[in-house]
Nucleic acid binder design. Structure first.
Lengths: 186, 186
DNA sequence: TACGTTACTGAACACTGTGTTCTGTAACAG
DNA sequence: CTGTTACAGAACACAGTGTTCAGTAACGTA
C-alpha cells in the first residue's frame, strides 16, 4: 500500500501502468503466457523503460505482491495464540476470495512457485513458532513439531488451492470450520 | 515397463538415449533448465531426430513417467479398504525415497506441474472412491466427502514434498505412521 | 520562469532457444 | 539383395529476451 514517496511523477505513472497491464493480462491469459512484449504493448511503454525499472517479468510480479507477507502477518495476528486453533485461516480464505481472479491466473504457472514459496515460508515460520511455544508449555504430541508444522502449513495451502480450483464451492467461514475439524488431531 | 515391441532397433536405441540424457540432465541442473539442445547434445542425436519422436521436452518427460499411474494403482491396491487408514501411503513414501533424485529435480519446475497433476488426479479419485463407499456404509462425518478427499490428497502430497525438500529426515515407515496420526480426525 | 537533471521513446542489435524442412547416407527387416 | 525407414546435419524462420544509445520531453527546484 504505502509506497515510498517516489518523487518523480513519471516514474509513478509508468510503474502503475506496468502493474495494471500485468494484472489485466494475467487474468486474460494466465501469468505464464504473458510476455514482456505483451506488457509493454498494453502499458504503452517503451521497451527500455520496462528494463529500467524491473529486471524481469517475475521481478514485476514480486514487487506487486511484496506487501503480501506484511498483510499476512497482520491477518494472522502477531501474538501467536496459546490456546484454540493453531491457524486462524479465515483471513486467508477471505483474502483469496476477494482476489481470486489474480490467484487463479497464477495457478499452475511458474510465477506462483515464487509467490507460494514466499507465503509458504512465512506461514510455516508462524506455525512453527506457535507449536514450539505450546510444546514448552507442556502440550505433548506424538508427532514432532517440525512434521506437524509442515503438515499444517502444507495442508492449509493445499486445501486453499483445492478450493480455488473448484471456484470456491463453500464460503470462507465454512472452509475455516472444516479445516479446524480436519486438523483436530494435529 | 512393457513397451510395445518397437520393431526397429534404431528407434529403440534413440528413444533410450534421449531418456537417459534427460534423466542425467534433470539430476544435474533441474528439469526447467534443461533445453532440447542439451538433450540432443548429451544423447548425441540429430535435432530433427528428436522432433521426429517427441513434440516437445514435456512430451519426452510424459512418456517417461507414463506408467506412473499404473504403478500407483498397484501400490495403493485396487480394492479400497473399508476399514483402517484411508490411504496406505507407505508405498508412496518408499517410491519417492527410491527415486528421490529425479523427483527433487522436478521440484519447483514447470514439469512437475503436469506430473503432479497426474498423480494428484489419480490419488484424488482413489480417495474419493473410498470415502464415498464408506459414507454409504454408514460412516458419518461432519465434513463433506469432497472436502475430505481434497484435504487428504492435498495434505499427503504436501507432506511428501516437505519431506523431499528436507532430504527425507524420517524413514518412510515413520512418515506413514505420522500421516495417519495427523489425519486421524479426517 | 529558467535551469540542470532525470525519465522516456524508439530503433537497432546480439543472443538463446524453438520447431521445420531438406538432402544424402546408413541401418534395418524380410 | 532390395525396398523401406530412420538418422545426421545444416539451413532456415521465428519468438522472446535483454542491452545500448541518441534524441526528446517532463520533471523538481531555485
Amino acid at each position: 500500500m504505502a509506497e515510498q514517496p517516489e518523487t518523480d511523477r513519471r516514474v509513478r505513472k509508468t510503474k502503475q501502468r506496468l502493474n495494471e497491464a500485468l494484472n489485466a493480462l494475467m487474468v486474460e491469459k494466465g501469468y505464464d503466457k504473458v510476455t514482456v512484449q505483451d506488457i509493454i504493448n498494453r502499458a504503452d511503454v517503451g521497451r527500455s523503460t520496462f528494463y529500467a525499472h524491473y529486471e524481469t517479468k517475475d521481478n514485476l510480479l514480486m514487487s506487486k505482491i511484496e506487501h503480501l507477507k506484511e498483510d499476512m502477518h497482520l491477518a494472522l495476528g502477531d501474538a501467536p495464540a496459546l490456546t484454540g486453533p493453531v491457524i486462524r485461516c479465515l483471513p486467508l480464505f477471505s483474502h483469496l476470495s476477494e482476489n481470486h481472479l489474480i490467484f487463479k491466473s497464477m495457478i499452475g504457472s511458474h510465477g506462483i512457485a515464487k509467490v507460494s514459496e514466499l507465503v509458504h515460508a512465512g506461514l510455516l515460520q508462524h506455525v512453527t513458532e506457535i507449536l514450539e511455544r505450546r510444546s514448552v508449555e507442556g502440550d505433548r504430541h506424538e508427532v514432532p513439531v517440525d512434521v506437524r508444522a509442515g503438515f499444517l502449513t502444507g495442508s492449509l495451502l493445499a486445501l486453499a488451492q483445492w478450493w480455488l480450483d473448484r471456484d470456491m464451492p463453500y464460503s470462507p467461514e465454512q472452509m475455516d470450520e472444516m479445516f479446524q475439524a480436519l486438523t483436530a488431531s494435529a
